[in-house]
Computed example of a mutant assay.
Amino acid sequence: MTAVLEATGLTVVHRTRSGPLHAVSDVDLTLHRHRTLALVGESGSGKSSIARALLHLPPPTAGTVTLDGTDLAALTPRALRTLRPRLQMVFQDPLSSLNPRRRVRDLVAEPLDAHPRPGTDREATVHRQLEAVGLPASFADRHPGQLSGGQAQRVALARALTAEPRVLIADEAVSALDVSAQATVLNLLRRLTEERGLAGLFISHDLGVVRAVSDEVAVLQLGRICERGPTEEVLAAPAHPYTRALLAAVPEPGRPLGDTGLLPTDPPSPLDPPSGCRFRTRCPLADDRCATETPPLLPVSPTRTVACHRPLLDRQP
């Protein structure tokens, strides 16, 4: 597999009035062509902070990010601006990311306006990208207010594709959509990643959704990756108690919503994370060692790594 984007030791610390907030701590990620990595965790786990750090908006507090072997931190501001089209992001609320006063044709063509490519047919490019996301060319004359949520998200995706990216980051890109629109956008993301050789990062709080779009999943808990591996393998038999709890929280017929019994308390504040394992204050398996030793991310199989002193190996959720 060809590595497109690599992050090593990624750390993000926000300075607040209450002190340093450790949003991301020593995270390693690798994105490959034709494949999508899902980054999953509760709200406040650091998922969006990782996305912004990968884009260098702003740069991470520590660690390195390389795109096709180029260290982003070593680039001048002008060189970084030139490289930015290769890194595209699709946001949670499409309507908030689309200028309501502009027509769809101008929105989709924004990357061409910002980074002109000589000899490019603007109108033909707009129509081609709209077709790629399943919208007719007639939509080019519409304004965002005339679009449904799913249509607006497809326009946002078409705009990202116009930049001819190497990496596509989708940050909660379907959480604001209804079920049918979610399915459409998820299928588009999967197909376009494979057909165009993109390296995808899909960010979500919902383990039930990532099965449809990702090849691998990395589970983020309070700024640290606690489990990573092939999506089907992780979802079939989660090895970390936190992954198991997230999977148990996915609604199922016959079970009351929220009745998981596995996450009885809110997550600790990243302003004051627990010592040792950051999940220990909510973990039913925690012991004295968990309070004093931070579990390293170690392989538990040829394809999976887990950061847990007592991984749930060969146990079903």
Rank of each mutant, 00 (worst) to 15 (best):
L147N: 11
A132L: 15
A291N: 05
L298P: 00
L297V: 06
V12R: 14
Q221E: 14
G41E: 09
T184K: 09
A7W: 09
R122S: 06
S301V: 07
L235G: 08
R255S: 09
D215S: 07
E194P: 00
R101I: 12
P60F: 08
G19N: 09
L285T: 14
P136T: 10
P144M: 05
R128M: 02
E123N: 05
P274I: 14
V24D: 00
D287C: 07
P284D: 10
A73D: 09
H309L: 13
H34T: 13
Q182I: 11
P299S: 11
G150T: 12
R84N: 08
V213T: 13
V133D: 00
A140K: 00
A132Y: 00
K47P: 02
E194W: 07
L130P: 01
H115I: 06
Q221Y: 15
I169C: 11
I50V: 15
H32T: 15
T64G: 00
L298Q: 13
L220E: 07
V27K: 00
G69R: 07
R103Q: 11
T303E: 11
S214P: 04
L263A: 04
H14T: 05
L54P: 06
Q92R: 07
A51W: 02
L29W: 05
L157S: 03
E233F: 00
A109V: 13
R255W: 03
P268D: 09
P295N: 01
A286L: 04
E232L: 15
S214F: 04
S25I: 10
A249V: 04
A248T: 09
A7N: 10
L54R: 03
M1D: 15
G254L: 10
E227A: 11
A245Y: 03
N187I: 02
D93K: 10
P264Y: 10
L31Y: 07
Q146D: 08
P264W: 11
V179L: 15
E164K: 02
V217I: 13
T16F: 08
S18V: 13
E232H: 15
R315L: 14
R15A: 13
A291D: 12
R315C: 04
S48N: 10
L112R: 02
Y242K: 02
L188G: 08
R255E: 03
S48L: 08
L297W: 08
Y242G: 01
L285G: 01
A51F: 02
L5G: 04
V104E: 02
V234W: 05
E232M: 13
T120D: 01
I169D: 09
P85E: 07
M89Y: 09
P256N: 12
L157Q: 03
L271W: 12
A137N: 04
P144E: 06
R280I: 00
L107S: 02
L186F: 09
A137T: 12
A199N: 05
N187D: 14
E131Y: 01
P295L: 00
L80I: 06
R166D: 14
Q182W: 08
L246Q: 05
R86N: 07
A53T: 13
S45Q: 04
R78F: 02
C277F: 01
V13Y: 04
L29Q: 03
D171P: 05
G145F: 13
R103M: 03
V4Q: 04
R84L: 10
